[in-house]
Amino acid sequence: MDLDGLLDLAARPHVYPVREDTLLLAQATKVWPGGRFVEVGCGSGLASLAAARAGARVVATDRNPFALQGVREEARARGLALDGVRTDLLEGLRRFDVVAFNPPYLPTPPEERDPDPWVNLALDGGTDGREVTRRFLSELPAHLSARGRAYLLWASIPSSASLSAPEPPRVVPGFSRVRVVASRQLPGERLWVLELTGAVEVGESGAAPGQNRSPGESLDVKDDTDRPGAGRAVRRRA
């Protein structure tokens, strides 16, 4: 999406600011006029604002009330229409044509959580950094329209456990196609945007798709860099 004129978003207390990962996801995401779009965990709301300007029917979700208030104010100041919904990921939402998510992905043991709970929410990916991503992927198929697509930020995760090159998954259970549509190398961290299409649901049993299959469990990619901790410097608030 075109981000011209949207990069002067005000920094807000308790809200994850626009960073390289924010930019890469918003640039790579494609929407169309009238298409239903949701930005999950919107934070600053950059992708939501860009999608609203492109004419999409936009919903921004976050658990963080400061983030939602900020997106609303930014939209109003720019004459853009969108709706904020305070919820966990996609809970309480039906189907969308396009879903975008920049998840918290820092491996975070409980004792390393950010003292600001709202900031921590934007960073804390659980002990392996992928907990929120796994939960999102297991819920995602049930929230996409027939030809819906999702854009997911995937980051190499710093770890001292291995020196192998981190790569995003080529296969994600629940989707027939996974494609890297953008990538960027930063000092000590590499970012990708995955486009997921061809969602397949388990059935109408009432259980959330993926509950029986645990799709996230198969995402056993080796996510390591040779510069442990460097990525955190990018992701952490200054």
Binding site: V59, D83, V85, T87, D88, G92, L93, R94, F96
Partner: peptide
Amino acid sequence: MRDDLMEILCCPM
């Protein structure tokens, strides 16, 4: 929220 958001919302429980 606008009225047409109702088409997109359901009970999260």
